[in-house]
Amino acid sequence: MHADDASDTIAPGAGSDLLAGGFLFAWAGVGWIGYLTNERLRASLESPSPDPGPALLALIVLWGLTLGGTAVTASGVWRRARGGRLRDGLEDARTHLRPAAFVVTLILLAVLLRPLGFLPAAGVFTACWLYGLTAGARLSLRHAALALLGGVLLPLGLQLVFAGLLLVPLPR
């Protein structure tokens, strides 16, 4: 694992600043849509009561995110103008392939949890990833056997603890 702190491995650069600005804008954008489509919320600003209303902090936060996003984007543009490259502060795109695949399979797992039940869905997920992470693209009977074993035991253990002891109604 990464022994040192994340912020030290790669310093912020033009690329990561522009991305951070976009990230903040994305949140602000979704927030603004939520605010502007909510009539009751906007109407609360007009209310005569001493309570400033539920829109006050929402507006402060949305403006904060919008202005903050602008500032961070500006810092990225500044760095780019001073000769920084768009790659600066970012990792190679291929780095993200495996995490992306992992998330996709997790979403699949969540979708299939109810139709398949916890044990089968989690079993397939576990076995596949155990094999993929240990054997990679190679064919290996030993790794396959270990992956299958893990695929059975790990979900069973979780089922025992959460459904058995903690009485959580896991889908089955």
Binding site: A163, G164, L165, L167
Partner: peptide, 13 residues
Amino acid sequence: HVLAAGALLAATA
């Protein structure tokens, strides 16, 4: 008691 409850649930499951 906890174990018993768990066993009961596992059995009914």
